[in-house]
Structures are given as structure tokens and as C-alpha cells.
């Protein structure tokens, strides 16, 4: 007796009962049937794709924005408030790439800001390296990177729009925090590169790009 169509389909897909497989080995008619089933699947896969006839994104975006606007505003506000609250209490510059001395005068503070801005630029240059842009990341590492990038973006908003009564000390603290976040970002990014990442890590401290 010939195997059932269920069994022939299973055999086509590399499965099916052993008894049916033995039968098919000796039965031309059944092996032809399996070939026919295979060609049917190939023909189905070869049918042309049907793309979308219109752009749904504007409508989806409108619905998403409507639902999220209030929540998102609250989230950003909370993050910004916490960063500003921390920064406002800091009066000492603490940076892995810059000075650890207290800011003794306005002139010192301006020098510290220049150094921190330069450190920021160097770290940003590392982050623009093609090898870092091409890397494959784990979901967990990607989430950390996005979190750091968002914190830096919020910090940049604070730097661009400081309260008028802030002194240079607060400005130094903001810049210092920015360098720390960039440093963490470079560490996270280069850590995903393995051996190649070590070169970038060295560059951060010695200034010679691999």
C-alpha cells in the first residue's frame, strides 16, 4: 500500500515514518509524487511578492504620538530633572581624562571646560570610527548604548539651555558628566569589538588611533 499524502509531505520535508521512507525508495510513483510536492512548494515560493500600495507610516505615527506624548514628556522631564539635580550639587571636577583638582577660580573653571570639551571631541571621534558603526551588538549591549546616548542628549539640552543663575562650576560639572558618559559609551562600544576594541581603548588614553 502506498503511503498517505501526510506521510509523503513529511518525507518531502525530511521527516516521516521509516516504513513509508522504505516504500518510497522502491516505488517510482511515490518518489515522483514527492518531487511533485517539492516543485509545488518551489512554485509557491517563486510567486511574486505583493508590496504595500500606500505609506501607512504617517497614520501609525499619528496614533503612536497621540498615545505617547504625555508619557514621553513625563519620562524626559524626570530624567532631565535628576541629572540637573545631581550636577547642581557637584562643585568638584572629576573626570577620567581631565583634571581632578577643585575649581579654584573662574579662570581655572574655563580651562577645565576647554579640557573637557577637547576630551569630548576626542571620544566622539572614536565613536565615529567605521569599525564601531559596523559592529554587531547583543540586545543587552545595544540597550546600554541607547541609554547612554539618551543621557548625553539630555545633558546637551541642559548645556544648551542653562538657567541664568548658574555659575561656571555648574557648567564644569555638566561637561565633566558628559565626558564620563562618553567614556562609558566608548567602553561599551569598544568592549563589543574584542581584540580590535582594545586598540580603541588604548587610543582613548594615549591618543593614537589604531
Amino acid at each position: 500500500m502506498h503511503p498517505s499524502l501526510d506521510d509523503l509531505l513529511a518525507l518531502r520535508d525530511g521527516d516521516g515514518p521509516a516504513e513509508a521512507a522504505r516504500h518510497v525508495e522502491q516505488c517510482t510513483q511515490c518518489s515522483d509524487e514527492i518531487e511533485e510536492l517539492r516543485s509545488a512548494a518551489l512554485a509557491l515560493r517563486a510567486l511574486p511578492g505583493v508590496g504595500t500600495s500606500r505609506d501607512h507610516w504617517p497614520e501609525i505615527r499619528r496614533r503612536v504620538v497621540g498615545r505617547r506624548r504625555r508619557i514621553r514628556a513625563l519620562q524626559i522631564g524626570a530624567v532631565a530633572a535628576s541629572i540637573i539635580a545631581v550636577v547642581a550639587t557637584v562643585v568638584t571636577v572629576r573626570s577620567p581624562v581631565s583634571t581632578t583638582r577643585p575649581v579654584a577660580s573662574t579662570a581655572d573653571a574655563r580651562i577645565a571646560i576647554d579640557e573637557l570639551a577637547e576630551a569630548s571631541r576626542e571620544l566622539e571621534a572614536v565613536l565615529r570610527a567605521p569599525a564601531l558603526r559596523r559592529q554587531v551588538l547583543s540586545p543587552k549591549r545595544a540597550a546600554v548604548i541607547v541609554d547612554l546616548e539618551d543621557r548625553i542628549a539630555v545633558l546637551d539640552m541642559a548645556l544648551a539651555d542653562q538657567p541664568t543663575d548658574w555659575g561656571v562650576e555648574q557648567n564644569v560639572a555638566l561637561w565633566s558628566h558628559r565626558v564620563e558618559l562618553l567614556d562609558a559609551l566608548v567602553t561599551t562600544r569598544t568592549g563589543a569589538l574584542g581584540e580590535e576594541g582594545v586598540g580603541y581603548a588604548v587610543f582613548r588614553y594615549e591618543g593614537s588611533q589604531p
Binding site: 505615527r61 503612536v64 504620538v65 540586545p139 549591549r141 545595544a142 540597550a143 548604548i145 541607547v146 539618551d150
Partner: peptide, 17 residues
Amino acid sequence: DEIQLARAKRGDLEALE
């Protein structure tokens, strides 16, 4: 891109698009 996915998870409209 995992970064794009991570951003989309946080509700980034550009990444979602």
C-alpha cells in the same frame, strides 16, 4: 540593526519608522 531595535524599544519614532 540592534541599535535601531533598542531605540525602537524606547519608543524612538525614527527607529520605529
